[in-house]
Amino acid sequence: MDTIMALVVGTLYATALYMMLRRSIIKLVIGLILLSNAANLLIFTAAGLTTGAPPLVPDGASAPVGAVADPLAQALILTAIVISFGVLAFAVVLIHRAYEIVKVDDMDQMKDTDT
């Protein structure tokens, strides 16, 4: 399972970087979205995969019984998803405004501030 997840994460990172290196701004944003998903999956995998054991506390007990999945990693991912949702929503608004002003979907046309 770990090997498959590692391959998935690696593929996601590679795809994301490939998309980010394209000239289109839309593809840049798609790349950023994929990248944040890749990072979330990486946390999920790195924290250890436990199948079929949700971290639930049974009635009357004060701690879960036996080996359960790590809930902290899930909390981290949830937080990261929320944050990246906010940031990427901003990025979408930004490229929309940028497209309205610059009128092209091409990074090569956007180097006025670099010289």
Binding site: G86, A89, F90, V92, V93, H96, R97, E100
Partner: peptide, 13 residues
Amino acid sequence: GSVLTIVLTLAEA
């Protein structure tokens, strides 16, 4: 508030 700000901004644009 934040989700609707984003949605309304995009919808108005």
